[in-house]
Write a protein that binds this DNA or RNA. Structure first.
Length: 974
DNA sequence: ATGATAGGACAATTAC
DNA sequence: GTAATTGTCCTAT
């Protein structure tokens, strides 16, 4: 807290921007100009508004420029430069004859400024790298280039490490050159602090600073040397870019925020600026444990990890070792090893948060969104989870919750962070002006620190890596969420429609917001009663909501402060993702607005259909701006590292841009491209995805050569977006939407969607039938081949029936009908592999039996293999339709996973479906007697089975008042 | 060297 | 050829 009262001296910040050209021969960048904007009075304890730092006398700037090799500066430039210098009273534009001289001059000026912080956009990935490489190549003496830092060096360190990883900052060699100064890369910072579709300076200037920026690529530069006017433009662009990154830094309050983060965790500011989040937590824990006189785990370099731990094991063995430590090691090493390889290749190494199966659909009455405030940090405190309190077993099993009363180090630490934040927030309320901003930064930093603690426990390269602890925390999180859901559903009789990790959504079914809020109050009260530290809170009230999938929904959020403000919140839907084009996002947004508008179904559908027809027409007549077709994809590797670039259009574009010297094209960049085709002389278009991706700039340059592939856009970008959104709206279908878009609707049947999903409430049409809604969500009928072990799905009934009435089938219709019911795996169309009517009836009966059985026992069936349901039959009861989501009674042996949820409605629906199939096949007049007779008999048996099942259910229902019974009362024998 | 896992969508690859 | 698996990307929490 002392930092608040101490006067912190201002620092000097210099923003650097280089302009380069490409040397085709060596494929390297050569510097032609360097601009520096320097701010001499930068406060680091408070955010700075633009009027604070743009004062006269605190800002200085200069640019140093050189002429191209073998040519001279254009006429008038030298005079202009000296005029400017004279007017400014200092060197603001220096002209040099060679790159070497430019570098020398730049270094001298930088050392005169002696800045504390170097700023630039992608400065660690580009400017510094180029600067030092050029210094090396041009043989700039070490006395000069080492002025970039504050340490005098005589030997250039190894600059490259070979790997240009995603989001990697400057290499260690480069960092060592600028020793004594801080490096602030606004590109890296903004990626941490903002969520943007692209992190290019142009984009950020537009969205954050509301300023236009002119993009200059290296091959635009040589032509600019033809006249003094264009060259002065180049100077202007360079200085503007430096200015913009400086402004961005102030805008995001990078320095005060990172300084606070550094202060809280006690690591190095330079590291915080590079975004080393794991290291911050590491230092914080080091300080805490050291203060309490604990011995701290050794630090291993990732490369030597295996070696070191092997040595350590050896030592532990020879010395007899600490039993707990020695035993814990192998499992940890094992996991680390796994984790290292696993993280990139395979999936996660332990289980995380619970996501509830959403009850999909469109809700039009108030919905409550409740969530636990910082769940994981609270769990650590609530259950006292710490290295010092949890007993970790050697076999990798989950540890038990600690029983010790004494608070561990971790919970204490979090408690103090929370308390400090609460205190700062209380000061925030009364403070004003600079103090207020200062407090705000501080409370943000405290929150960030507390929240990142859990992540580092599960981070395999962390010094404090503790998978068991992380696992224990997430397990508690899952339990807490599930318990909360149970409480709300069973005790408070409310409907939970969705929940993710730390939140639940409750559908109130009320029109009255004050009543809904009252319910929220009650829930909050009930839930919070159960916990000491944990706290659930009302996060929002939704007026209307479209719930599509896990992590995919949209809702109209009502302001909680009583005002009538409403805004639409979109989560995970296509339009919030950056891998869709602007056009598809806009159309999706329009549809969403319609769906949430509250209009009648028919109106909504009509307006969506109309707009699709309209969009199609607009696209075809060229009324859509080029920009809206742009797709952006990011590169996680450097483009040349993609093994199979031909299949990845954006990689192709990136590679080509790199050849052209586009500097912003390395790992981690977003590459904009447009799907288009090249028109050949014969009026055809060359195919292949790889050939069709082109950079928008190129299209602008030569627009006649390229055609935007509208067909592709309609089918690949717009149709999926719209049909996903409309899936829950009655009266529409993917095929109909395709029609409106002018696409071949037969290619967009819905039958292939969602067949493996056993969620019976699914709104999507399943494979069973594309016409009859009564059988939506049923389990498809699976047939087994009479001659081999293969099983396959029964073809859609409607198509079978259609085939019978198809005149083309003629008198062979019946034969063909049964021919369709044949095993797709057996090579020949023989009688053996065909499902005859008798076989079909038999199989339907078997499957119906199976289903009825599962319906009863299904309540006891847990997805978990290890859970033996048969022994627990007495504890279970038949669920009513409102009771989905009951926990398996064997909990916790089966980890609390949900039992299969069959409700009565499901049973009726499924059995009706079986009847339907049977009926559909039986009633065909075209079947000849010979095939029909045995079938008739089977059908009778099946019919009886099903009707007796219905009767049984009826009997049970009649007998009990509440619609459910103990299974012990039942002698179910089907 | 540079917090975590869960989940959906799509394209490419592999298995049958 | 089609179903299942794998890999990649981007989001939610």
């Amino acid at each position: 807290m002392t930092s608040n009262t101490l006067e912190v001296p201002p620092v000097v910040v210099a923003a650097v921007n280089l302009k380069t050209i490409i040397n085709e021969k060596h494929n390297v960048h050569e510097i032609v100009s360097a601009s520096v904007i320097c701010c001499h009075q930068v406060k680091i304890d408070t955010p700075m508004r633009s009027e604070d730092w743009q004062k006269r006398g605190t800002i200085s700037h200069f640019t140093v420029m050189r002429k191209l090799e073998g040519s001279i500066f254009p006429i008038g430039l030298t005079k202009e430069a000296s005029d400017r210098n004279q007017k400014a009273g200092s060197n603001v534009l220096a002209l040099e004859s060679s790159e070497r001289a430019l570098l020398n001059r730049l270094m001298i000026e930088l050392s005169k400024l002696d800045c504390d912080v170097l700023v630039g956009h992608n400065i660690s990935g580009f400017d510094l790298d180029v600067l030092l490489h050029r210094a090396q190549t041009c043989k700039v003496p070490s006395s000069m280039w080492s002025k970039i830092g504050r340490l005098r060096r005589s030997v250039m360190p190894r600059l490259t490490k070979g790997n240009t990883l995603y989001g990697s900052g400057a290499s260690p060699g480069i960092m060592s050159c600028i020793a004594g100064r801080l490096l602030c890369d606004t590109y890296l910072c903004s990626r941490d602090l903002l969520r943007e579709v692209s992190y290019s300076l142009t984009q950020l200037a537009e969205t954050q600073l509301k300023k236009d920026r002119r993009e200059v690529s290296p091959h635009d530069i040589p032509p600019m040397f033809q006249s003094a006017g264009t060259l002065l433009k180049l100077v202007e662009y360079g200085e503007t870019d430096a200015w913009l990154s400086l402004e961005l830094m102030f805008h995001l309050s990078v320095l005060p925020l990172t300084r606070q983060l550094t202060n809280i965790s006690g690591n190095l500011w330079g590291k915080t600026l590079q975004g080393a989040r794991a290291q911050r937590v590491e230092y914080l824990l080091l300080h805490s444990f050291h203060a309490k006189k604990f011995i701290i785990p050794d630090k291993f370099a990732a490369r030597n990890k295996e070696l070191n731990s092997a040595k350590r094991k050896l030592n532990a063995d020879t010395e007899g070792g600490n039993a707990a430590d020695g035993a814990a090691d192998p499992s940890i090493d094992d996991e680390v090893h796994h984790g290292d390889q696993g993280k990139a290749r395979k999936g996660p190494s332990y289980a995380g948060g619970l996501v509830l199966e959403p009850k999909k659909g469109l809700y039009d009455k108030y919905i409550l969104l409740l969530d636990f405030n910082s769940l994981y940090p609270s769990i650590i405190q609530e259950f006292n989870i710490c290295f010092t309190t949890v007993e970790r077993s050697s076999d990798g099993n989950l540890p038990n919750l600690p029983t010790s009363k004494a608070s561990g180090v971790l919970p204490e630490l979090l408690k103090s962070l929370v308390e400090r934040r609460r205190m700062v927030k209380s000061w925030l309320k009364t403070a004003s002006g600079l103090k207020r901003q200062q407090f705000d930064i501080q409370q943000q930093a405290l929150k960030l620190t507390a929240n990142s603690m859990y992540g580092c426990l599960g981070f395999s390269n962390s010094r404090f890596f503790a998978k068991p602890l992380a696992e224990l925390i997430t397990l508690q999180g899952r339990e807490i969420l599930q318990n909360t859901v149970d409480l709300v559903q069973n005790n408070l009789n409310l409907e939970v429609i969705y929940g993710d990790t730390d939140s639940i959504m409750i559908y109130t079914g009320l029109d009255d917001i004050s009543k809904a809020k009252a319910i929220a109050g009650k829930v909050i009260q009930e839930v919070n009663k159960k916990y000491r530290c944990l706290e659930i809170d009302l996060d929002g009230v939704y007026k209307r909501m479209l719930l599509l999938k896990k992590k995919k929904y949209a809702a109209i959020k009502v302001a909680l402060d009583g005002s009538l403000r409403e805004n639409i919140e979109r989560k995970g839907l296509d339009m919030v993702r950056r891998d869709w084009s602007m056009l598809s996002k806009e159309i999706g947004d329009f549809c969403l607005n319609q769906i949430l508008s509250g209009g009648t179904c028919d109106d909504v559908i009509e307006s969506i259909h109309n707009s699709l027809v309209q969009v199609q027409a607009q696209m075809k007549s060229g009324q859509i701006e080029l920009e809206k077709y742009i797709i952006t994809k990011s590169l996680t590797k450097a483009p040349e590292d993609y093994p199979d670039a031909k299949n990845q259009p954006h990689v192709q574009v990136a590679l080509r841009l790199k050849q052209n010297g586009f500097s912003g094209c390395s790992a981690g960049d977003t590459v904009p491209y447009i799907i288009c085709s090249q028109q050949d002389s014969d009026n055809t278009h060359s195919g292949g995805i790889a050939q069709r991706a082109r950079h928008p700039d190129e299209l602008k340059r030569d627009p006649n050569k390229w055609m935007i592939d509208i067909e592709y856009y309609l089918s690949q970008q717009i149709h999926p977006v719209v049909s996903r959104l409309c899936a829950s709206i009655e009266g529409t279908s993917p095929a109909r939407l395709a029609e409106c878009l002018g696409l071949d609707s037969s290619k967009f049947q819905s039958r292939s969607i969602g067949s493996s999903n056993e969620d019976t409430s699914t709104m999507l049409l399943s494979v069973i039938d594309d016409e009859d809604e009564r059988y939506r969500g049923c389990e498809p009928l699976r047939l087994s081949c009479p001659s081999c072990t293969n099983t396959f799905e029964c073809p859609a009934v409607s198509s079978l029936i259609a085939s019978l009435s198809d005149p083309n089938e003629g008198k062979d219709a019946t034969v063909n009908f049964w021919r369709r019911m044949r095993c797709p795996r057996c090579p020949d169309d023989t009688d053996e592999c065909r499902v005859s009517p008798a076989v079909l009836a038999n199989q339907i009966k078997r499957q119906a039996d199976n289903f009825i059985n599962r319906y009863y026992k299904g309540l006891l069936m847990c997805d978990d293999e290890g859970c033996k349901y048969s022994t627990h039959i007495v504890n279970l009861r038949v669920m009513g339709d409102s009771e989905r989501g009951t926990i398996c009674p064997n909990y916790p042996q089966c980890n609390g996973r949900l039992v299969r949820q069959y409700t009565e409605a499901d049973l009726y629906r499924q059995l009706s479906y079986f009847c339907y199939v049977l009926d559909a096949t039986r009633c065909l007049d075209k079947l000849d007697q010979k095939m029909r007779l045995p079938f008739e008999k089977e059908f009778a048996v099946l019919n009886q089975t099903i009707s007796s099942a219905f009767l049984e259910i009826q009997r049970i229902r009649d007998r009990c008042a509440f619609g459910w019974v103990q299974l012990t009362d039942l002698a179910v024998s089907i």
